[in-house]
């Protein structure tokens, strides 16, 4: 009998991501929220914005709604953030 162990795993392809530079200050930033269709997630995002607005005078410029929690954000939605967002906050989970 062949007593070799066969590896059924598949390594994920490595991917490099270019991160946007982090803002130096939070004051007066333009904010985009990315909500994932979950009610509680959206509630927390909006509550978070309330605090950021009152403490740092952030402006909410757009709320993007993903197709579902399991979908990545659409590329067109990311493109649409150019010029209107300094930072984005995404909701995850329920």
């Amino acid at each position: 009998m062949d007593l070799t162990l066969f590896d059924p795993t598949i390594p994920a392809r490595p991917e490099s991501i270019d991160f946007a530079p982090r803002p130096k200050r939070l004051n007066n930033l333009k904010l985009v929220l990315v909500e994932n269709t979950k009610y509680n997630s959206k509630t927390i995002l909006l509550k978070l914005f309330e605090r950021l607005e009152s403490r740092f005078q952030m402006q909410l410029t757009q709320v993007i709604r993903k197709a579902s929690a399991g979908h990545p954000i659409a590329a067109t939605d990311i493109d649409g953030c150019v010029g209107i967002a300094d930072i984005a906050i995404a909701g995850i989970g329920d």
Binding site: T37, S68, A69, G70, H71
Partner: peptide, 8 residues
């Protein structure tokens, strides 16, 4: 399964 119509 799915929390929304578009989930799957």
């Amino acid at each position: 399964w799915g929390g929304s119509r578009s989930a799957t």
